[in-house]
Every structure is written in structure tokens, then in C-alpha cells.
């Protein structure tokens, strides 16, 4: 963390080729940066590895969501049919497992799906309506033909002059400071 420039968000580095971006990402990863990101117009195979991103732990959250849905469905049907408003239908037990399975299945899927969706939002810090990179004119080409790395100032390794030097050594076509 460098406090010499309080308004600084980070350093933007522009690349003109995905291969150069991936190589630069490996260097940033190996240098030990944690607070940084890469932006590309299209998905690039092998980016996760090059950026040192671990496999997502979202599935565990989803499993928890699914099991919660399963339990909620059983509890709900037991309480409604067998406790709160017992109603005999064609001689079936008031709490009969086979009759409850369809709702159990639906709620398991629903809770798991909602957990997936909002869990993904949560883990990615969404919704995210503003980002300092939008101030950069250069960055507009990220949806067309340019590739970017942003090294954030809040990274513990960030020191303005040294990091600027490091950024310049990554093989990009331009380096720019981003204000917050």
C-alpha cells in the first residue's frame, strides 16, 4: 500500500495481443500481486491459471443452498399438511414421503439455482455499477481489440514508482494512471 497518492486507483496497462496479455499476467502473478485484474474483449483459455485464480468454491455454497431447499420443502409440507391443516386426501398418510418428493425436488433446484446466481454476484462484488477504469479513454477499446491489466493501488506490494517501472516492463503498448 502506497499512501503517497491518495486519489490513485491503480495503473492501467494496455496490450495489443492476447498472448502478450497472458504472459504479462503470469509475471504479475509471480510478482505476488493480489489486488489486480485483467480485462479482455473475449474469454481467453488459460487465463485463470495465468492469473493464479483458484478453482471456485461456489459449489460448496450451492450444495448448502440445495440442502437448505430440501429441508425447507420437507418442513413446509410437514407443517402445512400434517400439523397446521391436516387434510385427508384419498387415504394417503398426512405426511407421506412420495407425495412430498416433487416439491422437495423443485425447492432443492430453486434454492441451489438462486444460491448459484446470487452467490456468483456476491463473490464477484456485483452489482458493480461504477468502476474507475471507465474514466480511461483507452479502456473503451476493451470491447473491441485491446487487452488490459489493472494493478490496484490498494495492493500491499504497490509502490507508485516501482510499480510503474514494473508495469512498463510487462510488454504493453501503454501505461496509464487511474484516478479513483
Amino acid at each position: 500500500m502506497d499512501t503517497s497518492a491518495p486519489n490513485l486507483y491503480g495503473i492501467l496497462i494496455e496490450f495489443d495481443h492476447p498472448e502478450r496479455l497472458v504472459n504479462a499476467c503470469r509475471k504479475v502473478r509471480d510478482a505476488g500481486f493480489k489486488r489486480w485484474d485483467a480485462h479482455t474483449p473475449f474469454p481467453i483459455h488459460g487465463m485463470d491459471g495465468a492469473m493464479g485464480i483458484r478453482v471456485t468454491r461456489l459449489p460448496f455454497l450451492i450444495l448448502g443452498g440445495g440442502l437448505t431447499g430440501l429441508a425447507a420443502a420437507l418442513l413446509m409440507q410437514w407443517w402445512m399438511n400434517a400439523v397446521d391443516y391436516p387434510f385427508l386426501i384419498s387415504g394417503k398418510p398426512l405426511f407421506g414421503l412420495p407425495a412430498n418428493i416433487p416439491v422437495v425436488f423443485e425447492l432443492t433446484v430453486l434454492f441451489a439455482a438462486l444460491t448459484t446466481f446470487f452467490g456468483m454476484w456476491g463473490r464477484n462484488g456485483m452489482p458493480h455499477l461504477y468502476h474507475p477504469v471507465f474514466k480511461s479513454e483507452r479502456f473503451r477499446r476493451v470491447t473491441a481489440d485491446r487487452f488490459f491489466i489493472v494493478l490496484e493501488a490498494r495492493d500491499p506490494l504497490f509502490q507508485l514508482s516501482k510499480t510503474q517501472e514494473f508495469a512498463a516492463s510487462l510488454g504493453g503498448v501503454a501505461v496509464e494512471l487511474l484516478e479513483d
Partner: peptide, 8 residues
């Protein structure tokens, strides 16, 4: 997983 993985 890496970008330079060997394709058989």
C-alpha cells in the same frame, strides 16, 4: 489447464 498445455 495452462495456455501452453500439450494437445495430443
Amino acid at each position: 489447464m495452462s495456455h501452453h498445455r500439450h494437445i495430443p
